[in-house]
């Protein structure tokens, strides 16, 4: 029996986890090596009874990230939330779904409010309590961008998490600066000479964050829990300004099936449109390789916001441009094994 156990350990080291290498848990590995989400002790920072839509990627991403942060800090987290879906569906009076200390102030000031929280903790001699600011892409890349940049350049001890669902979903699916080209939103209808969101617009806040030279920047996805948790853990192990952008599909805004939330997040990574990478002090240090590359069509097709692209010749040409964007990401971040090695 002893000998058997020894052999098992040896095989664990060899990563023979055909089953469960990418799953949330794995009964064959020790608890520490399983995802936080596999544990019955996870904090469920965001608990049952919230009013997010069915299959909400943001609800999932927020619990993933906050639970990991809670694990990393021994439960010493204070969260500041920007206005948006996450705020509205978690805290409509008289019920809150949060189990951590949590503050909502305004749409555009989450980063600054978190700076205040961190300052208060420092001055109170409780620097073990860590501040996390969180918001959607609207609250981050648009209205909250000034405060975000200020927090970055001051290198305040805040982890800012952007749950990126690529639009203003709470207000009825309008365009944000994180809306991808071609996507139909309520303010970029699939009409006119350039239907959907205009190509050549938008910005990459992760890249802008990298340009601030802050200690840590990463992108993550609800489709790769292990990677996401590792990045949150890494972020919580560092002091100073940190930024994490998590891709969270929105069934309502994207016009996708509620059960496809994780699948779409996965396809976004696997086609190259949402690159997963990490950067430290202004330098990109790693990227998550694509395991099974797919054409962007596979990602776009299950989403009604892109349906108009599939009905015309011009639309097909735009899909080609989106493929070009994916290809560029793949080259820039070395997302394929071979290219990474080259």
């Amino acid at each position: 029996m002893n000998e058997q156990t020894t052999t098992l350990d040896a095989t664990q080291k060899l990563h023979f986890y055909q089953k469960g290498t990418f799953t949330v848990g794995n009964r064959l590995v020790s608890d520490e090596r399983r995802a936080v989400q596999a544990s019955t002790d996870r904090s469920n920072a965001l608990t049952c009874g919230h009013r997010a839509c069915q299959g909400c990627g943001e609800a999932l991403g927020a619990r993933y990230a906050m639970d990991a942060a809670m694990r990393a800090t021994g439960g010493n987290v204070i969260a500041v939330n920007a206005t948006g879906c996450l705020e509205v569906f978690t805290t409509p009076y008289p019920e809150t779904s949060w189990q951590t200390p949590w503050l909502h102030s305004l749409f555009g000031n989450a980063a600054a409010v978190a700076t205040g929280v961190a300052a208060a903790m420092r001055v109170k001699g409780r620097s073990e309590v860590r501040a996390i600011a969180q918001g959607g892409d609207g609250g981050t890349t648009d209205i909250g961008f000034g405060c975000l940049s200020g927090m970055f350049e001051r290198n305040d001890d805040v982890l800012y998490i952007c749950y990126d669902n690529e639009g203003y979903m709470n207000t009825g699916v309008q365009r944000s600066s994180a809306t991808p080209p071609g996507a139909r939103t309520a303010t970029t209808p699939a009409m006119g000479p350039e239907p959907g969101n205009v190509f050549g617009t938008g910005k990459s806040v992760p890249k802008i964050a990298v340009a601030h030279g802050i200690p840590y920047v990463a992108t993550a996805t609800v489709a790769d829990l292990h990677d996401l948790e590792r990045k949150v853990m890494r972020a919580m192990g560092i002091h100073g300004a940190r930024y994490l952008q998590i891709h969270v599909p929105c069934p309502l805004g994207w016009g996708s099936a509620s059960h496809d939330t994780i699948r779409l997040a996965r396809l976004a990574v696997e086609c190259g449109l949402f690159p997963l990478f990490e950067a430290e002090h202004g330098v990109v240090t790693s990227s998550q390789k694509i395991r099974r590359r797919v054409p962007v069509d596979d990602y776009l097709k299950p989403q009604r916001r892109f349906a108009h692209l599939f009905s015309t010749e011009e639309g097909r040409e735009r899909i080609g441009r989106l493929q070009g964007l994916a290809d560029r990401n793949i080259a820039e971040y070395h997302l394929l094994e071979a290219e990474g090695d080259a």
């Binding site: 503050l103 409010v113 205040g116 929280v117 300052a119 208060a120 109170k124 405060c147 350049e153």
Partner: peptide
């Protein structure tokens, strides 16, 4: 005392909001 140079008045009061909510005299 934490003296924080912020990037705007909006941030100034926002930082004060966070600090105050976390129990600091702001």
């Amino acid at each position: 005392c934490e003296f924080i140079n912020v990037e705007s008045e909006f941030a100034a009061l926002s930082v004060a909001i966070g600090a105050s909510a976390a129990g600091a005299r702001a």
